[in-house]
Design a protein around this nucleic acid. Structure first.
Lengths: 213, 213, 213, 213
DNA sequence: GATGAATGAGTCTTCATTCAT
DNA sequence: CATGAATGAAGACTCATTCAT
């Protein structure tokens, strides 16, 4: 077997195990058992256990970035409405998670308690997602689709939280129950909830006071 | 020192450490060092490391339940508007997380890879939050404030994800940067985004865009 | 409660537990639980766990010695036959074990793996039993009841082994099944097996089968 | 080193230590120090400390069974006398213990206070020895060599106790003092004591009374 | 490259003993 | 004297990593 293939094999089985059992409860023994290779072989391709995990995350990260770039190149910004744009973004992101529910689980449910360098990678990924969303909200504000009073920081969190949890729920936790649910349906549903609140044209004076009476 | 006090002390320091370093990377050694007690003392009050963690989560769970009950008894359902009700709920939940940012971190960032019985407790907590939200959405539908076409499952996830992420972001991760941000402001902001989408009166024929007829 | 009574109480419960579970598997916690006293109280009466155990054995040792002395004073050496004497001795020893099946179990089944000072006490007890038996065999040889060719060392072991095992079997292991078996019956049975071999008058030339001359 | 060899090595050193210090006082640290291996190596071959001990006992058990079978196939039952048969059995058993004085010590001196599964194995071994002896006594009764009045249960205990104690005394405790004593001599001596009592043809009426004179 | 036996630092857990109240 | 919370040395077991074959 070629070196690259073997490395990919190890990654594949590791991904399965990390997704199901998490970083700590997945042992090298489990990986070599499932991959039917010798203990030492793992260390021929990876520096250590961390390295496997980080490689997995890095792959994910790269895939996600490429997905974003590809998507943008396909959009016709002159024609698309703000609502459709939002829906497109949500759909692309959901699709990304749907395509790899194992990595989805790893990223969305791993948190505190991993080694420092692992946490860094996860936070970079999460931070980047958030940043992109925020930038697009700014864009919306400049194009007058979104009120300037909107707290982009907060809204970015709302969107991120909502979308990531949706991904976790439909693609990992309740995967079987909703396997007929399409990414398109989910994106449509999310957009319908967020669009009215995001794209409302509210005069600033009414927004800033809670209750004028 | 009285038994209950000592137990509370151990729990307090454990909470700090679990929050900062997670379950796996927090060692009994760390706990006894910070609590300035002997190794054996921990085991006088807790069966093992799991037991400490689960006790912590159970306490949290109880606090949260009590908070919900207390809040409901204080609301005057005959006068409050749907929007204000939503805002109240969001605020209570955020307040709950704001009050204990350590447990907030533990619950929101712990996921896969803990022992079985620990995962169970966490999932129960998350599930209960989601269930309550869903029930209130049903209530909204019956009182005609929320469209019957709304996918309550999905919306419950959107709200849960949005609120939990907001809590994590403002009360844990960026705590220092936003320490002047009040819970009220956050609740207001979240409500403003969600209310228009939730309480819109949309005729069913316009919503069903996929209608084959 | 008086000091001596409390000490006796601790000894009593310790004996039960040591007999049932052995030295290592009996914990101070078990003793104080059964005796319904506080942990520290044990150490008011005994230096440590070893001390309890050794006190128990010493009591046993003393009881046994006294039993022997009492018995000898009751025998009329001018009238008793060698066979009856043997039977008497066996009976006394069996009675001694029968009277306290817990200590019987402790002594007969404890072996290697106890702390040094405990082992010493046990070996002293066993050694003393053996020595007494051997001395009586010498006496038998001098009174011409037992052949001078007899290997007293070996025979002492045979008797000791046979009697101790009988005690263990009938008074501890199969206690329930044979609770109607009297000590007298056992002594009679043992005597019947050993007497013919012990008191035979064998000419020396026939015994020394390995004689090279 | 091959796996089986390494396992045998660990067993060998463990046997030495268990024999000398017993189960509880022998630590994994002692074993790895004496075997000059790493701590983890032990756990590559054995599940835990119990597993080592039980493996040792099981090996012993198997050896003993095989010894019995081999011995029986070598005897010519048509020619041998009852006394010689007894002597042969005693000799075989003694030889068995003489061949491995460490396991002899472990089995003969271990008793109460070991973990449940260990005690089970020890009791099986002891029980089997006793059963075999009893069966042969029955055989003796059917062939009219042994009186039917004889209490086989009791006599089996006498023989077992006598032989096991002899083994312990000569092969373990006083090993150095009697290293010139042959197994044959011991078997001869034991037989000489037991044979007259076992093979006496006593009319039942004379047996039941103690001494009419 | 592949193997898997060997390694040993690291961790949890136990339990006899102490001592302030 | 009695109590029982606190102690900490000791010991079993784990598992990522190495390296000779």
């Amino acid at each position: 077997m070629k070196a690259e293939d073997r490395k990919a094999l190890i990654l594949m089985y590791s991904k399965q195990l990390f997704s199901e059992y998490g970083y700590h409860m997945t042992q090298i023994s489990d990986i070599i058992k499932r991959a039917r290779i010798a203990r030492g072989t793992v260390y021929q391709y990876f520096k250590n256990k961390d390295d496997i995990f980080i490689t997995l995350l890095d792959n994910y990260f790269t895939t996600w970035r490429n997905g974003l770039a590809k998507r943008d190149s396909e959009l016709d910004f002159s024609k698309i409405t703000a609502v459709d744009f939002l829906k497109q973004r949500i759909k692309t992101t959901l699709q990304f998670f749907a395509d790899d529910h194992e990595l989805c689980n790893i990223v969305l449910k791993m948190g505190v308690g991993l080694h420092d360098n692992i946490e860094k990678v996860i936070q970079r990924l999460e931070g980047d997602i958030q940043t992109i969303i925020k930038e697009e909200l700014y864009l919306g504000q400049r194009t007058r689709n979104i009120s300037e009073d909107m707290d982009t920081d907060l809204v970015a969190n709302l969107l991120t939280g909502a979308v990531l949890r949706t991904a976790l729920y439909y693609f990992v936790q309740e995967r079987e129950a909703f396997k007929d649910k399409t990414v398109d349906e989910l994106a449509e549903g999310i957009t319908r909830v967020f669009a009215p609140g995001l794209f409302q044209k509210v005069p600033s004076e009414e927004q800033e006071t809670n209750d004028p009476s």
